[in-house]
């Protein structure tokens, strides 16, 4: 691949323009949120771990759905993105282990999905496509040229969102 891929780590956020790509690896119960402004080919991706920020302002905002999503949108707006044009795609929120008795490990993925949807609704952004839940990790790639998101996982076909 000749185009540059920017890696978004865990609890991390990056933005880029076409023809660059953003990638985040092996989302388990974490969620990767892709935001794309097609008019100016501006892409943003955030990799959140937990639903709600209860650490306060001196924490890493991108660790949490409720603070990471608004911070990503704000960053994109600084670079000319317009919220009303943004297309959103999400992947992740799996349950990696069936732990008995039912502990928080079991449903953190589900709680993350709910928190992400709530945070996006608050911003007035609709989710265009999603690949969430089940029990496997996903690698998520966002092409800033086209806005296409690709989900790669172990033992399954590649999925284009």
């Amino acid at each position: 691949m000749s185009e540059k891929q920017l890696v978004v780590g865990i609890a991390d956020m990056k933005i880029c323009r076409g023809p660059q790509k953003l990638i985040t690896y092996a989302l388990g119960s974490c969620i990767g949120i892709c935001l794309y402004d097609p008019m100016i080919r501006l892409a943003g991706m955030v990799h959140i771990m937990l639903p709600n920020n209860m650490e306060g302002s001196n924490s890493n905002v991108f660790k949490y759905a409720d603070t990471g999503i608004p911070a990503t949108i704000k960053k994109m707006e600084i670079f000319g993105g317009v919220k009303s044009r943004m297309v959103c795609k999400i992947a992740g929120g799996a349950r990696m282990f069936e732990v008995q008795p039912n502990s928080s490990i079991g449903n953190i993925g589900q709680r993350n999905v709910e928190a992400v949807k709530k945070a996006l609704a608050k911003e007035g952004i609709r989710i265009a496509k999603e690949d969430v839940g089940l029990n496997y990790a996903r690698t998520l790639l966002l092409d800033a040229e086209t806005g296409a998101a690709v989900v790669r996982s172990f033992g399954r076909k590649e999925l284009v969102l």
Partner: peptide
């Protein structure tokens, strides 16, 4: 519990 999958997804469980 057991899971066969990407290391990143598996190790994110204790991290979370």
């Amino acid at each position: 519990a057991m899971s066969v999958n990407m290391l990143g997804g598996i190790m994110s469980v204790p991290m979370v």
